[in-house]
Design a protein around this nucleic acid. Sequence first.
DNA 1: TCCCTTGCCGAAACCGGTTTCGGAGATGAA
DNA 2: TTCATCTCCGAAACCGGTTTCGGCAAGGGA
Lengths: 354, 354
Amino acid sequence: MTISDVAAELGLTKGTVSRALNDYPDIAEGTRLRARRVADRLGYRPLGSAQAIRTGRCRAIGLVLETDEHDAHRPFLDLFLAGLSDGAAAQSWTLTVATAPVGAARETYQRLIEERKADGFVLPRTRLEDPRVELLRASDVPFVLFGRHKTTEGCAWFDVDGADAMRQTAHTLVARGHRRIAYVGGSPGYAYNGERHAGLVHGLAEKGLALDPKLVRHGANSRAAGEAATAELLDLAHPPTAIVFAVDRAALGAWRPAEARGRLVGRDLAVVAYDGDPEGAYAEPPLATWAVDWGRAGTVLAEMLIKRVLGTPAEDLRDTMPAQFLDRGSASFQQSSDPAGSGAENQSHMGGDS
Amino acid sequence: MTISDVAAELGLTKGTVSRALNDYPDIAEGTRLRARRVADRLGYRPLGSAQAIRTGRCRAIGLVLETDEHDAHRPFLDLFLAGLSDGAAAQSWTLTVATAPVGAARETYQRLIEERKADGFVLPRTRLEDPRVELLRASDVPFVLFGRHKTTEGCAWFDVDGADAMRQTAHTLVARGHRRIAYVGGSPGYAYNGERHAGLVHGLAEKGLALDPKLVRHGANSRAAGEAATAELLDLAHPPTAIVFAVDRAALGAWRPAEARGRLVGRDLAVVAYDGDPEGAYAEPPLATWAVDWGRAGTVLAEMLIKRVLGTPAEDLRDTMPAQFLDRGSASFQQSSDPAGSGAENQSHMGGDS
DNA sequence: TCCCTTGCCGAAACCGGTTTCGGAGATGAA
DNA sequence: TTCATCTCCGAAACCGGTTTCGGCAAGGGA
């Protein structure tokens, strides 16, 4: 079923039918309607490749997943893909997925670009120094970042407001009586990391507190790393009463070392994390965390990328979405015991500026 | 950089260059080499859409993921995608991914087929009555099933030998002294389910045992369902000493109800499951499970599908891969206690045949 | 009445490849 | 030498669309 068949049925030429279906202004309204009606009576679908060759667009959004053995577990990938797919499908676009070893994505992008398998890319996991940005800019290929930071000028981006989530986390924990609050960050080099850290610092500052550098750990993106960080923190002379993790998977490592030291999460130690990993719901007590609507994020990113490809300037394509707090058991704190000794001094009050 | 540019550089016509690069026999060997050399000196890549329009192939393998809220968690999706992507990329193919609500995949396939966004499909999660098979057959679109069963005649398929895994599980458990072995199946309707069940039955039979129908539960594909099934089984008059789960996620639900009944997994109750979910490694004791090499499976499926599209008959495209047993703590059994009362009778011995 | 717009469609070029067909030149046999 | 055969490449059609261009006919103004 080609456009020529439709044209023959209508007694028109294929050029006319093409213009009619694509809303060219030089087509009579009646003709346009007739064409449209006949086209979908005959079940006509333009062949993607055929239009691509002339228009230069294949109506596909590209997604390159970087496979990282250390951090391979992505519980939300399916939701994210579903969101992207929906957003794309709504405009008859599709999703081209490829994978690459974490450092060597360059060739993968190159191939997809040269063979024009995608009109643009969604870049998950924005990094602070992101080589993908340079690459795509050099090739003049549109893209949308998932995650933002200061050096992403001129880029279109979408982000979940992790900073605000952490800011509110600070408020909540302070309101619940915590003064010594620790922070365990995730993979350094990724934008989300600095964002969440900054948000926590900001939130504490608003309550007149500073984040004690001794209570900060970095690079915990696995359960094992979370266990190690927790152990270190709890073994300090003045251990924290609350630990904020940048990622759920690390947070799930808090239970064992805490228990081994006679402290119960949700009673003697508050734990709050970020991601909304369903696994957290099965912890005992369940992990309090900030859930991200990955499906929605995917849909928005798809829509933004399509607009970008169609010409909307990058500056007009920026948006954020809030995360949602799941205030579960691990965030409570009953101060029923005080393993750090009574009278442990408060977290240092801040100095003058900011 | 089009083929015409290459032709101009060579002083040939584009038709000749096309034939040279595609190994037509009517091209002189010297010309072929010269063309190839110039082509990749100039960095020429044929435009996928352009070839697609004439050849009818877009060099893309299609994958439609059915989003199932109840069973949405797919910890291996990224590995599987990586495998597919690698297998495809090795032959300059790409991967087109779409998602669909679990029952309503039909339209998604239709669209992908009509717009020729994929030359064939990999069908994950083969079901016993699989509407996708009819659909694709009717449209005469090649496909490869991931998972097999008796009614998949005439189909190309690849499968991980879950039956043999369960068979060996039976042997192992019997060797460790178990006689009352329970089985908790996953989502009914999926091929893997019957396969694993049958494998366990077979393995027990080889040791002269039968699977007691009272020790069988179905439909447990989540942690919560696994908890419920475990609770039921342990509350029987003659509870099992070992439980075999079809899926890891359900198996992870065994710990709590066991503990609540004073039985420790890995001591009073053996638990073996299937999938190799990394989460199982963090259970206490860690979950014994059969790990599947999802990446390898993806690669094989991609290769098979490409061959299928290129004309290899379905009957020649069938293969299996073994799963690998991770014999961890939950599978041990020390019979240090006997909550079912001493002298609990053995699992009934089988009758005459088979 | 004549000319100039305007609306609307046909014709044809075009996109970047693939594939068919035919013919020029070399080769070999008669 | 002549004719048939092969080898190898050019020319052109083709795939299924999109886009440009030109022209016919109707409508409007002078």
